[in-house]
Design a binder for these strands. Structure first.
Length: 299
DNA sequence: AAAATTTGACCCAA
DNA sequence: TTGGGTCAAATTTT
């Protein structure tokens, strides 16, 4: 708790203040006629990066849904074309599924025995270390889904997993579903955490045909957030609209409406949705502190 | 050499 | 039989 406060303070001091300064400079720059656009874009990129870092850190300390629901579990499917209304049941470790929805093929739902929560974020990293163990093309979805498990699954029996999939309607966003909480020794996890060097794992999604030339098959966060040529979109996170384009029966990807938290960043609006069983994201304070410390000097 | 990723095979409920 | 999730051998990266 105290440590979380300390971390927040640091985030405030380093990232947010820095971002604010960048934004101020940008504002000055824009108000001056004939100022070079290149540097404006540069500033914009810096601002974005700064805020992304801050959000990432804060978000992992304290997942945004403070009003945790009492649901035992929540739908985990991100299949953009499927409506879900079955329920999870307790089950063994794996390979159990729940019924289809609306008779449409491919609309499965996985049984979940542990808490599951989903968020949307342009940021792929978090404070845990993950090992990718699979990737699947998902029916009716444009982007593949990547599967990750905790690096310490076998050494420490940690059962946490996550699934990551690009959001169809906003390809710079990722839908990240966390399943189960970490039981691994967080101290052991520290050295593997690559929370700040921006040059690591995260998903490498290969999609056969992506239209944006700036989207390479390897979608590292840096590439995502750094793009100076991203034009105005580099500055704005578009509002996420959960609108089903090819199937009317579906209103929202996360149908079991729970908590939806919004945060405003740079005047734009990003929506994060957190669901489920009062996700017990249990972080060791030390871990965060260490991670944050190691990050804070990287601007 | 060890750790991580890729990717086709496999499992199983629907 | 199918699609989603996982496994594991092959491959790549560190």
């Amino acid at each position: 708790m105290d440590t979380n406060k300390a971390i927040k303070l640091k985030v405030m001091n380093y990232h947010l203040v820095e971002g604010h300064e960048f934004a101020t400079k940008l504002q000055q720059l824009l108000s001056q006629p004939g100022s070079g656009q290149g540097s404006a874009e540069d500033l914009a990129a810096k601002i974005l990066e700064t805020f992304n870092k801050a959000i990432s850190i804060l978000d992992s300390i304290e997942p945004l849904s403070s009003s945790s629901s009492s649901l035992a579990a929540v739908e985990g499917s991100q299949n953009a074309s499927c409506d879900n209304d079955g329920k999870f049941e307790d089950s063994g470790d794996s390979r159990k599924r729940l019924g289809p929805v609306k008779g449409k093929r491919g609309c499965y739902k996985r049984k979940k025995r542990s808490e599951t929560w989903t968020k949307q974020s342009p940021i792929l990293e978090d404070t845990y270390s993950w090992r990718k163990y699979g990737q699947k093309e998902i029916l009716n979805a444009k982007f593949p889904r990547s599967y990750f498990r905790c690096t310490h699954k076998y050494t420490q029996g940690c059962k946490a997993t996550k699934q990551v999939q690009k959001v169809e309607l906003e390809p710079r966003m990722f839908s990240i579903t966390y399943m189960g909480s970490h039981t691994c020794n967080t101290n052991a996890a520290i050295p593997e955490v690559k929370a700040c060097d921006n040059h690591h794992d995260e998903i490498t999604m290969d999609m056969e045909e992506h239209q944006s030339p700036s989207l390479t098959t390897s979608m590292k966060e840096e590439e995502e957030n750094h793009r100076p040529h991203g034009s105005s979109t580099a500055l704005v996170w578009p509002e996420i609209v959960f609108e089903e384009d090819h199937h009317h029966h579906h209103q929202a990807i996360y149908a079991s409406g729970d908590t939806s938290t919004s945060i405003d960043v740079l005047g734009s609006h990003q929506e994060l949705m957190m669901f489920g069983a009062g996700g017990d994201f249990e972080f060791s304070d030390n871990e965060h502190y260490a991670i944050f410390n190691s990050c804070s000097n990287l601007s």
